[in-house]
Write a protein that binds this DNA or RNA. Structure first.
Lengths: 139, 139
DNA sequence: TTAATATATATGTATTATACATCTATTTAA
DNA sequence: TTAAATAGATGTATAATACATATATATTAA
């Protein structure tokens, strides 16, 4: 790879990450922070799941997911079912309150995205998303 | 924007950010963490700069930069010059030790990038980088 | 010129997301 | 049936950040 290109990509990736982090307060759209939003995003499509499976899917430590689930459970956005196959585990399921909050957050995020990507063509967004996914699923 | 596309992009961006965070220990290549690397990256090209200008360039709070500079100053990677025009400020300049560490970290990062982007064409990387920069510089 | 205000930086404090280590209860394997 | 493995919860540590406040210097207005 050309040196200059790597340099620029490295810098731009780092900046993206930095900005996403520092804009965190902005990204708390509605009552959901990013962690909660991602969990509900996942559980909306794949309920019910155990803590471990969620951790693997999101590539985070189980202890992190355990706490995050406890947090959104306290708010009533998910509930636990006993896992009939394993007494140690429980299965996490999104509630209707969770669905509602998720949809509210999503609407807010759509608006934000529409502003940010206003000048992009559909084709460009598709390409960019494809590259992102490819990078995420590498290695 | 199409709903599904926004959804996917949102998820993939969040995942990228998440992974970049949790891979932090890996990203401490050589003696430089990401913050130090970015500061030196900037100062290598634009020394000397004041704290405030650095904060604006990296879009972080001045207090954050003040601490980060103090940290790499203690390691001898940057030094302060009095600002002849303003007694409150100082100008931060990369040292030769800072240059050396930067180059070491850079070599390690190049290797890591080459692994990750092994299957990408130059053209794809250029495009992806262009999209990243465009996103970063949007407001 | 002097007093009020603004600015650059440093420091105190709080928050958040994370990992790793350890603990308990349960499951699986020898 | 005991030993080892596993799922999840909890204790603890770390890192990056922002915001509030303090201090010294600069700038502006009276």
């Amino acid at each position: 790879m050309e040196q200059k290109l790597m340099d620029t990509m490295d810098f731009e990736l780092a900046m993206l990450i930095r900005r996403a982090l520092s804009v965190q307060s902005e990204m708390r759209l509605g009552k959901l922070d990013r962690a909660a939003y991602l969990l509900l995003y996942l559980l909306k499509n794949k309920s019910p799941m155990g803590i471990k499976a969620i951790a693997e899917e999101l590539r985070l430590d189980g202890s992190t997911i355990s706490r995050q689930i406890a947090s959104i459970e306290a708010k009533g956005y998910v509930e636990r079912l006993p896992d009939p196959k394993d007494g140690r585990a429980s299965l996490i399921q999104i509630t209707s309150a969770g669905m509602d909050e998720f949809m509210l957050a999503k609407t807010a995020r759509v608006q934000r995205f529409e502003e940010i990507f206003e000048s992009w063509t559909e084709e460009e967004m598709v390409q960019f998303t494809t590259y992102l996914a490819r990078l995420n699923h590498a290695e």
